[in-house]
């Protein structure tokens, strides 16, 4: 394997959830296609941002990568090895660690921070017992938690500090990839900045790859090399952060970008906004053809029957039948 091979690869990944009714005699009433045919690759040291509306499947995709949700079909490859069926906490996935939105829920309230950081080192026998305290101190320093705080418990820390502890715990396993699901969404802007700086530093200094899920496009653009835009379980646009966020091509990405309020009073007042009608459709009952067609201003009859493939266009990939006519 060469170093230019992707560190992580998703091939036509699908995660479907059966919807059942009845307690004794289960009756299948439908299928939620939370992830529906996603192919992506992540390079070493790359930050890939994943954006899209609530319910579009971002967390499910992350959980499927981590083995926390079973893939219905398709495969996940880590450094050239197919790990699709490997257990979530096993050795095969150790290079892959996850950070969640709510750091409080992901930390055990009864473990002090020092214990929380030592535990994975012991369980995975990453260090001899004698070296554990030094490694714990090193991890704490890496995320900016003072060594004197190691005896404290999660509730004694602020939200931003708890998120840093959760990141340190993920780092304890010496991952090469971190999947972060909305790691700053629950934090105040001034605290958000600490976590964003920390993640950027880890990518830079440890050479980590990062899958970064967020709904704030300016945050995603700040950190990401490439951005993938998801809509109803599929990737609709994929390209460099600057291309996708500054010069979006897919009608959905255009609407998404134009909806983001910018902290610029004159710019905001002058701006023409594309306001989408209606809510995102339910993945239980997705539209035929292009999943975006019921909300798309450019939809034609052909959009109702043909599923647009993700195809190269203007230096990125776009899944829209009419993209060349629109731009």
């Amino acid at each position: 394997m060469s170093s230019s091979d992707p560190i992580l690869e998703l091939r036509d990944l699908r995660t479907h959830f059966p919807m059942e009714r009845g307690l004794l005699f289960k009756q299948l009433t439908g299928t939620v296609k939370a992830v529906d045919g996603v192919s992506l690759s992540l390079a070493r040291g790359e930050v890939l941002g994943l954006v899209g509306e609530s319910g579009c499947g971002k967390s499910t995709l992350a959980r499927t990568i981590m083995g926390l949700a079973p893939a219905t079909s398709g495969s996940v490859w880590l450094e050239g090895v197919n790990i699709t069926a490997a257990p979530a906490t096993g050795e095969a996935r150790r290079a892959l660690q996850m950070v969640f939105q709510d750091p409080f829920a992901s930390l055990n309230p009864r473990l002090s921070v020092g214990e929380a950081l030592a535990e994975p080192l012991r369980v995975h026998r990453l260090r001899p017992a004698a070296e554990i305290p030094a490694r714990v101190a090193e991890l704490a320093a890496l995320v900016g938690i003072p060594a004197r705080s190691l005896g404290k418990y999660p509730h004694e820390f602020s939200g931003g500090q708890r998120q840093r502890i959760a990141i340190a715990r993920a780092l304890a396993l010496e991952p090469r990839i971190i999947v972060a699901d909305e790691p700053v969404s629950a934090l105040d802007v001034s605290i958000q900045a600490q976590i964003l700086n920390l993640l950027a530093k880890l990518v830079r200094e440890l050479g980590l790859s990062l899958v970064f899920i967020a709904h704030d496009l300016s945050v995603v653009k700040h950190l990401s090399d490439r951005v993938a835009v998801m809509y109803l379980g599929r990737i609709v646009e994929l390209g460099s952060a600057a291309d996708v966020i500054e010069r979006p091509q897919h009608p959905y990405t255009r609407a998404l970008v134009s909806a983001v309020p910018r902290p610029d009073p004159d710019g905001e007042r002058a701006r023409q906004r594309i306001v989408l009608a209606g809510d995102p459709p339910s993945p239980l009952n997705p539209p035929s053809g292009c999943p975006f067609h019921p909300r798309c201003a450019y939809a034609l009859d052909s959009c109702k029957t043909t599923v647009p493939p993700l195809a190269p266009y203007a230096g990125r990939e776009v899944a829209c039948l009419r993209v060349a006519e629109i731009s």
Binding site: S190, S218, A242
Partner: peptide, 17 residues
């Protein structure tokens, strides 16, 4: 506050904390 939000800073720069 303004120096800590990515939308007002150049991409990739260290944000004020």
């Amino acid at each position: 506050l303004q120096r800590s939000i990515p939308a007002l800073q150049a991409k990739g720069t260290e944000l004020y904390t």
